[in-house]
Simulated assay, not measured.
Amino acid sequence: MPPPERIPSRRMSGDGIRERTRTDLDLLARGELTVRGQVREASNAVLYCSVALEGEEAACVYKPVAGERPLWDFPDGTLAQREVAAFEVSEATGWGLVPPTVLRDGPYGEGMVQLWVEADPEAALLALVEDEEAGEGWKAVGPAQVAEDRTALLVHADTPQLRRLAVLDAVINNGDRKGGHLLPAPDGRLYGIDHGVSFHVDDKLRTLLWGWAGEELTAEAVTVLGSLDGQLAPGTPLAERLTGLLTGAEVAALRERVARLRRTGRHPVPSGEWPAIPWPPV
């Protein structure tokens, strides 16, 4: 299959984010999907597509369930649903950190379809620095071996958007927050992608965003978690949608993670029972 050809992506910014998201969801759910290429570096089948409906067209990613590689710790054929669940939870926070995502039929069967976001190549979110250089504007993740004779410090940017994403990852129990899953858009917004290994009932949090580990949550995050707690109550619209995507035990574990974050009032720390940083990190 040829490499992807670029189709102009939609930009979601300003006061019209919510309305734009609703319009994009309709386009993604009902539009005609045309496969344009394949993202070859992905471990599962990831197809770059265009989606068109009533004169509107956008670029998107289509991940068919049939192309998912089996994992030892997640049920087969559930990664697409988890990606959609991550979008649902992100929308419930009001932070809009996950691009519009739907579950629908496509050329290769049911799968996840997500709006394509073109990342800003000039935006720097991760860096390798000497210890003394990790100062204002950066948060340390940990040492990284960059050569046989040298170990540098891996750091990530200290921004409100990344901190919100760290909270979202703790909520959804993201097991694979790599550097390549961070998309800083040219309009200044930040998106996270690839949430297929999320929502496990056991602690699986693996991320490059450990810079706030153990620190107090921001007042904004505390407010958002309180709202999310109410939205996840049994019988609510969000809970009903998630029940169609996750198991009952996984939804219950999601509620408990939100409750635990509210009780502690702090960002989680690595458990020590699971590798804290995904590999490869980028």
Rank of each mutant, 00 (worst) to 15 (best):
R104Y: 03
Q38A: 10
N173Q: 04
L245E: 03
P4R: 12
D76F: 08
E256I: 02
D105V: 06
D229T: 14
W138A: 00
P107M: 07
A58V: 08
G214K: 01
E88K: 12
L115Y: 12
I17T: 05
W95V: 03
E68Q: 06
H267Q: 05
L126K: 08
R69M: 13
S43M: 09
T236M: 13
T264S: 15
L128G: 04
L97G: 02
G214Q: 11
R255L: 05
T34H: 09
Q145D: 11
D15K: 15
G94L: 05
R150S: 09
K204G: 01
W95D: 07
A157C: 06
P278T: 14
V98E: 06
H267T: 02
V258E: 02
T78L: 02
G94D: 02
E32P: 00
E148T: 15
V197F: 02
E215K: 09
A123H: 04
V39G: 12
R255F: 01
E250R: 06
R163C: 11
M1P: 07
V102H: 05
P270S: 05
D203S: 07
Y62A: 03
V129I: 06
M112Q: 14
E57F: 10
M1N: 07
V129G: 12
R263A: 15
R189E: 07
Y62E: 01
D187A: 10
T159L: 13
L217I: 07
G235N: 06
W116N: 04
E54W: 01
Q145F: 10
E122L: 13
S90G: 13
L103C: 04
A221T: 11
A134I: 03
W116R: 12
S227G: 15
V258W: 00
R6G: 02
T21D: 02
A166Q: 00
L103W: 01
T21N: 00
A259W: 09
I17C: 01
A124F: 13
G67W: 14
P99K: 13
G135K: 00
R260E: 07
G188I: 06
L205W: 03
L183W: 03
V251Y: 04
E56I: 02
L225R: 07
L71T: 01
L183T: 01
E5G: 08
Y191Q: 07
R22E: 12
D76W: 00
A170N: 09
A166P: 08
T78A: 05
A276I: 12
L165N: 02
R262V: 11
V146A: 07
R262K: 09
P99M: 14
A86D: 03
L228M: 00
E91G: 14
R266A: 10
W116E: 10
G214Y: 14
L79W: 04
A29Y: 15
V155D: 09
P2W: 04
E133R: 09
E250F: 11
R22L: 14
L162F: 09
W212G: 13
L242R: 04
G142Q: 04
L27E: 05
H156L: 02
W72L: 11
V167N: 04
V197A: 14
A147S: 15
G106Y: 06
T207E: 11
N44P: 04
A147V: 09
P100V: 00
A170F: 06
T159K: 03
G111V: 13
V251L: 15
R260F: 01
P8E: 14
P160Y: 10
V117F: 00
E215C: 05
V84T: 03
E215D: 12
H195C: 05
G137N: 00
R69N: 04
E83L: 08
V222G: 08
L125F: 01
D131Y: 10
G109R: 03
W279Q: 08
